[in-house]
């Protein structure tokens, strides 16, 4: 076979795989949309957005998404408040303090941490973190948003670290040298020059962390309970959007029923959240690139 033919075949294979990806995405969005539309023909959007209860599987049915959204946001905020400071401090240490060799070994190790199956993290939250926290906070429920959020935060630390470290490394060395030459200590150089100069990249890392946390399923399904509840209290069981979807998908709800369609409405809500976050990060990254060109 000639070289030219091989080229052609490879080109077509690449085109085909791109096509498969695009078609899958379109398919997912189409299913989400059509099932959601059929859901909203039976339940008003007003009720969906304003009702404070989510009980589609009970006799007294309520279809208010707010409890699931609050559960999702609660665990997400806890996760990000753990992951942002720790992830950023580790990134600053790796980028500004650690010897190059150390950085080159530790960074891949951290990325392995991100590859631990989330079910492992989930059981860690349930069996280790919750019992430990209960010794400090006696009225903490066995299932709660706090442990799930904290462990989710630990899980996304490598994420924040990796992106932030890349952002710090992308800051021109001349700025660092300028800061040193004015008599800055390492700490001052890091926090007054490097972090602000890398801020857009760091913000992107945080947004991606948010979107990762919002979509996280296993940890919250195992450790946060499955009780939709409109609350900001991290000590009681809650339910997130993802957990609800899993719960219904695995349950014996008949396909095509209104109960079944709720998971598409919930999925649509999730999709809107992550779509917005990804767009914000895309926009920031684009702006950031323009600035340094």
């Amino acid at each position: 076979m000639s070289n030219k033919n091989t080229e052609k075949i490879i080109e077509w294979l690449l085109r085909l795989s791109a096509l498969v990806t695009v078609l899958t995405t379109i398919g997912i969005i189409w299913v989400l949309l059509s099932e959601s539309v059929s859901f909203f023909q039976q339940v008003s959007i007003i009720e969906f957005l304003t009702d404070t209860q989510w009980t589609p599987l009970y006799k007294d049915k309520h279809f208010g998404i707010m409890p699931l959204v609050s559960g999702t946001l609660l665990t997400t905020f806890i996760a990000v408040s753990v992951a942002l400071p720790l992830g950023l401090v580790i990134a600053i240490y790796l980028s500004e303090y650690a010897p190059k060799k150390f950085r080159k070994t530790v960074k891949p190790l951290l990325e392995i941490l991100a590859a631990v199956p989330t079910v492992v993290y989930g059981f860690f939250a349930l069996m280790v973190v919750t019992p430990f926290l209960q010794t400090i906070i006696p009225n903490l429920s066995g299932f709660n948003a706090l442990s799930a959020g904290i462990v989710m935060g630990i899980m996304i630390i490598p994420f924040v670290t990796s992106f932030s470290e890349d952002a710090l490394q992308a800051v021109p060395k001349s700025l660092k040298h300028g800061a040193f030459a004015l008599g800055s200590t390492r700490l001052q150089t890091s926090f007054r020059v490097m972090v602000p100069a890398a801020s857009s990249g760091i913000v992107v890392s945080v947004i991606l962390a948010f979107s990762r946390a919002i979509g996280e399923t296993m940890i919250v399904a195992i450790a946060a309970g499955q009780q939709p509840r409109l609350t900001a209290n991290p000590l009681v069981p809650i339910e997130t959007i993802t957990t609800y979807i899993v719960q219904v998908s695995l349950g014996d709800v008949p396909h095509g029923s209104l109960e079944y369609k709720t998971i598409f409405a919930a999925g649509m809500t999730l999709f809107v959240f992550t779509f917005i976050l990804n767009n914000i990060s895309f926009w920031i990254r684009k702006k950031f690139r323009e600035k340094y060109d």
Binding site: S174, H177, G178, A181, L182, G183, V193, P196, A197, K291
Partner: peptide
């Protein structure tokens, strides 16, 4: 860092911080 407060440096390529004019000088 103390030494560098009495020996300043200007580099070949201008390297202002991505801050305001005021903040650069006040740094």
């Amino acid at each position: 860092d103390e030494l560098r407060k009495s020996i300043g440096m200007v580099f070949q390529k201008p390297n202002p911080f991505p801050k305001s004019i005021f903040e650069n000088v006040a740094y």
